[in-house]
């Protein structure tokens, strides 16, 4: 999903200058706990967060986060914006809450970056040889 599409879905303002709106992200993660971002995200993730301090950018850089959306209309302090420009991480701001931002993006098909069970539950269907063990 491109930043342009995300901005539209979240009614969001792109804070950073010189952002390529066609840049895309593969998945998203909503977190206010930086250790969770470091543990559970993958390169190419969009981070949605309510935190605006510069360590969010440091965390994002460390974890390979592609772009950040600040939720609940929070505007980051100048040092955060400056650091994000230095690290080349686009910043967006949405007036919606974390829950609504995540919901809007998930509904539009942007997958989660969380752990998932690879072996989906076997339901009865066309697949006849379905081991239950």
């Amino acid at each position: 999903m491109t930043l342009e599409e995300i901005a539209k879905l979240l009614d969001a303002e792109i804070i950073s200058r010189d952002v390529d709106p066609t840049q895309s992200v593969a998945m998203a993660c909503g977190a206010d706990l930086m250790s969770d971002v470091l543990t559970f995200t993958h390169a190419g993730t969009l981070l949605l967060t309510g935190l605006t301090n510069p360590q969010v950018i440091r965390t994002a850089d460390t974890a390979g986060i592609s772009a950040i959306v600040f939720v609940r209309g929070k505007y980051p302090p100048p040092e955060t914006i400056a650091l994000a420009e230095e690290m080349n991480i686009p910043l967006l701001r949405s007036r919606y809450t974390m829950y609504e931002c995540c919901g809007r993006l998930y509904k539009a098909g942007l997958p989660s970056c969380g752990l998932f069970d690879f072996s989906a539950p076997c339901q009865q269907g066309a697949q006849t040889a379905c081991p239950t063990a």
Partner: peptide, 17 residues
């Protein structure tokens, strides 16, 4: 589409393919 989309479909529906 990415493989994760396919995995999500397998998790959602009972189809084998």
């Amino acid at each position: 589409e990415t493989v994760i989309s396919a995995i999500n479909l397998f998790a959602r529906y009972s189809y084998g393919r």
